Amino acid sequence: MSVKVTGMARLIASLLVVCLLLPAPARAWGPVGHRLIARLAEADLSPQARAQIAELLAGEADPSLAGIANWADELRADDPDLGRRSARWHYVNIGEHQCGYEAARDCRGGHCVVEAIREQAAILGDRGKAKTERLQALKFVVHFVGDAHQPLHAGYARDKGGNDFQINIDGEGSNLHRLWDSGLLKTAGLDEDAYLKRLQAMPAGVDTAFLTAAAPVQWAQQSCALVLQPGFYPRRAKLDPAYVRHYRPVAEQRLRQGGAHLAQLLNSVLGSS
């Protein structure tokens, strides 16, 4: 028996093909990088913060910070409306301004990673809010602190944070943003657990004695400063192995700092004792 394909069915099939061909959005650090930052932070939580986080995460498929670390990147598929509304919360473009941050210019309406961290941290720390709202804020905070420590999430608007800067690594085409998301880390040849041990053995190199309201600005500016360093943008499309040797330790240090800063923020918001 023949089946007549309706015009609507043909349209749906065509849309599915188009969706499959569309490039996936770049993810800061990639899933493994975000999980590493979350696991680093989890090890440094205060007892009070740990208890509150456990209460908020009760019922999650993976009730850990690592288990929710990539939730904000998965919204595009799981909750398209929230994914669209929060899309600009993952980055701030300050490279064109020599890494100086001005909220009115760089974060109109609060739509950037700096103000998103501040706003979601305030929601997380408000015990008068519903548990569902605080849980969502926790998921955003864990992810956005990671984003703020990926250099190209605080870089140039003109090349979309390195997404438009094409490179070739080991004979395969890529872009600078993707290289920093996951490419540099993959060259180490370590699985997640081994990488965690490697990062935990590194000094955090941050002052965790106190946290100021300006901290998210500072994290973004530190990321931007790396982007503006001579040599951060490769001179040739074909990536020199020396680039990986020089910048992979830098990426690892940003992961280590991201974990320390995330723990610092969570301890401050949820209690330090």
Rank of each mutant, 00 (worst) to 15 (best):
L56W: 02
I53H: 10
H97W: 11
G67H: 05
A121M: 01
D106I: 00
R108N: 12
G171E: 06
S64F: 09
E74I: 04
C107Q: 04
I123W: 00
P63R: 03
F165M: 11
R76D: 11
L75K: 01
A51E: 14
V113N: 10
R50T: 04
R158H: 15
R88F: 09
P63S: 05
R158Q: 14
R158N: 15
Y101W: 12
G95Q: 06
E119A: 15
A130K: 12
L56I: 05
E115N: 13
A148E: 09
G155E: 03
D62Q: 13
A66N: 04
P80E: 09
Q52P: 07
D62W: 04
C107T: 04
H97V: 04
V92N: 00
Y91A: 15
E133N: 05
D81A: 13
H149F: 10
G100P: 00
D126M: 10
G100M: 01
D62A: 14
R50S: 13
D126T: 08
V92C: 03
K129S: 13
G171S: 08
E102C: 00
S64R: 12
Q98Y: 03
R108L: 14
C112Y: 08
K131T: 12
A61Y: 04
G128R: 14
I68H: 00
E133T: 13
H143F: 13
D78W: 10
K139G: 05
D147Y: 07
N163D: 15
N168K: 14
C107K: 00
R84I: 09
D164I: 05
C112V: 08
P151A: 03
D170T: 04
A66M: 05
R50Y: 01
S86L: 12
A154Q: 07
D79G: 06
L138N: 11
R118I: 09
V114E: 08
A69I: 09
Y91T: 12
D159K: 10
E74T: 11
K160D: 15
R85H: 06
V92Q: 01
W71N: 04
E55M: 03
V92L: 02
A148C: 10
N93A: 15
G125A: 07
W71A: 10
T132C: 06
E60A: 11
H90Q: 13
C112K: 06
I117M: 10
I123D: 01
V142Q: 00
A122R: 15
G67K: 06
D164G: 09
D81H: 05
A61I: 13
S86G: 03
R108W: 11
Q120W: 09
R85W: 06
D164C: 07
F165G: 00
A66P: 02
E102F: 03
